[in-house]
């Protein structure tokens, strides 16, 4: 599954789709576990978020049992 397209002002790819697929989890389930609305998780997943709080990142990593680096990566620009 391809990573979400980055927003226009950054080159950070969010790999939420891959992590969800690897853990067999839906966005709704993640939303319930993390306490962030599905709409906001979709914004994050689609790379349209401008920033992510450490508290949100912590809960995402707990729910997905991953490191922040698994969730996002920097894409080198040409």
């Amino acid at each position: 599954m391809a990573a979400a397209e980055p927003g226009p002002d950054h080159a950070i790819d969010i790999h939420l789709d891959e992590l969800l697929a690897a853990r067999g989890m839906t966005l709704t389930q993640l939303s319930e576990q993390v306490g962030v609305t599905i709409v906001n998780l979709s914004i994050l997943k689609n790379g349209r978020a401008k920033a992510i709080r450490f508290s949100t990142l912590t809960r995402l990593c707990e729910a997905l049992d991953c490191q922040p680096g698994d969730l996002m990566s920097w894409r080198k620009q040409d």
Partner: peptide
């Protein structure tokens, strides 16, 4: 506010 509006 614009910056905060995109914070998840």
């Amino acid at each position: 506010s614009d910056d905060l509006a995109g914070t998840v």
